[in-house]
Amino acid sequence: MPSETPQAEVGPTGCPHRSGPHSAKGSLEKGSPEDKEAKEPLWIRPDAPSRCTWQLGRPASESPHHHTAPAKSPKILPDILKKIGDTPMVRINKIGKKFGLKCELLAKCEFFNAGGSVKDRISLRMIEDAERDGTLKPGDTIIEPTSGNTGIGLALAAAVRGYRCIIVMPEKMSSEKVDVLRALGAEIVRTPTNARFDSPESHVGVAWRLKNEIPNSHILDQYRNASNPLAHYDTTADEILQQCDGKLDMLVASVGTGGTITGIARKLKEKCPGCRIIGVDPEGSILAEPEELNQTEQTTYEVEGIGYDFIPTVLDRTVVDKWFKSNDEEAFTFARMLIAQEGLLCGGSAGSTVAVAVKAAQELQEGQRCVVILPDSVRNYMTKFLSDRWMLQKGFLKEEDLTEKKPWWWHLRVQELGLSAPLTVLPTITCGHTIEILREKGFDQAPVVDEAGVILGMVTLGNMLSSLLAGKVQPSDQVGKVIYKQFKQIRLTDTLGRLSHILEMDHFALVV
């Protein structure tokens, strides 16, 4: 994948999101292997301009796509893939009243899908469409860049269908997702969380590099694949309309690839034109409109599966009536509230959605109805927002919020430890010299600072030695090549209790 991002070429006709291997024109390309080798690009942008032909009021008969309808489940399912879809609609009884809503608040519980998330729908649909058009064949390999849930859905379907599955996901995604993927037989590649989507090191860039190296491999490409919004247009939206008897006044959905909100909203605009569509985008993402909503100094966020630093091709923002931004604290607070007060075992993005819903639905009156999409299960986040310690460490809970008995030293300040200034190293000294210094002084790690004293990161003896043994660096290389740029900081005025929580999850903390 090139470091400079080429513009994806656009073909003359058809839909841009065809499933299957992508040609340089962004659509299915038939021909000899030699032709494909000559024409197939190194990668295709996940934010390529959409060429979708959908228009409100256009006859369904003019759609270029294969459409399906929700099917009634048999008493005995032939395999677990038949437990994807037909998820329950559940009334939220307490939270709406707590925040003064007059309307009825309903939750579409997508964590009841077989793999635990709304992404099971698009995973199965992308595979079925690729099999139907002859792209996927027995023994082929599926590769997908994902925040985890699409990966789980694909790995689940691949396990049943017999495909090899490789999932490329950023490091910030939970260990629970990784464990589930491994249990399903998927191979996992992790990428830096802070890598831009168009960087060769991003999950998108690495996935395309693997595709170019592995024979008979395919990126189904949830960011561009029409099967993504079509899955929701054909099934999720129809289920909502049936469950609500066609009567709903507002739908609120958090947005990642945009397939969920695009597919549902398009069908609702056709069948229930008075329904307002509300999009939820986390602070630090750029999906919301108008652009002024996205202006923030924050560039990272903890909530998973929603928000991006690019506009995915499948996201149709014209069908969203209003956007709201959400933050991590309210997302996790509301997710825990949904679990504790409503018994809905949902993930953090569901918290984002409901946090926005109780604001947006203030305009609705008694007798009206708001539906929220709860995308995934708490299963993926047992060591994250479900953990009091994690919430404390991230600053989303305060010590006084917890009532468990603490040891005698818990409320003492870090400054009472009488710490001395640490050994520091410059980023320009060599790895070999740094190892000598650390061994001589008896230290395992040291902060790396520039000549102005600005902290650049941390270097550890173990990481340097393993990097040297693996051949990633040489003793003569500058130590700046092996620094940890993500590390926890703590102030002298913070409590030892807070430091204790940090050290339970990290090997060190830097006192500043």
Rank of each mutant, 00 (worst) to 15 (best):
S3L: 13
Q7F: 15
Q7A: 10
A8C: 02
E9I: 02
P12V: 07
T13C: 02
R18D: 14
R18V: 11
P21R: 05
P21A: 07
H22I: 02
S23Y: 13
A24S: 09
G26L: 09
L28I: 14
G31V: 15
S32L: 10
S32D: 02
S32V: 08
E34M: 11
D35L: 06
D35T: 07
E37M: 06
R51C: 02
P59G: 02
E62C: 13
S63Q: 02
S63I: 08
H67W: 02
A69T: 10
A71V: 12
P74W: 02
I76T: 02
I76Q: 04
P78H: 15
P78S: 12
I80A: 05
I80G: 08
L81R: 08
L81V: 12
G85D: 15
D86C: 06
P88G: 06
V90N: 02
V90L: 06
R91H: 02
I95G: 02
K98V: 10
K98L: 07
F99P: 02
F99A: 14
G100V: 09
L101D: 05
L105A: 07
K108L: 05
C109D: 02
N113I: 02
G115V: 06
V118L: 04
V118R: 02
K119F: 06
R121G: 02
R121D: 04
R125E: 10
R125D: 05
E128I: 14
A130Q: 02
D133N: 14
K137G: 08
P138R: 12
P138V: 08
G139L: 07
D140Y: 07
T141L: 12
I143V: 02
I143W: 04
E144A: 02
S147L: 02
T150P: 06
I152L: 02
G153S: 12
L154T: 02
A155M: 08
V160F: 02
C165F: 05
C165L: 07
I166F: 07
P170I: 02
P170D: 07
K172A: 02
S174M: 02
A183C: 12
A183Y: 04
P192Y: 07
F197G: 06
P200R: 10
P200C: 02
E201W: 12
E201V: 02
H203D: 05
G205W: 13
V206M: 12
R209A: 08
N212H: 02
N212P: 04
I214W: 05
I219T: 02
L220H: 05
L220R: 05
Q222L: 05
Y223L: 04
S227D: 15
N228R: 04
A231P: 12
Y233V: 02
Y233Q: 06
Q242W: 04
L248E: 02
L248T: 08
L248N: 02
L248Y: 02
D249F: 02
M250G: 02
L251W: 02
L251F: 07
V252L: 02
G256W: 02
G258F: 02
G259H: 04
T260C: 08
T260G: 07
T260R: 07
G263L: 04
G263K: 05
A265V: 06
R266Q: 02
K267C: 12
K267H: 08
K269V: 02
K271L: 09
K271V: 10
C272K: 04
C272Q: 02
C272G: 09
C272F: 11
C272H: 15
P273Y: 02
G274S: 05
C275V: 14
R276D: 04
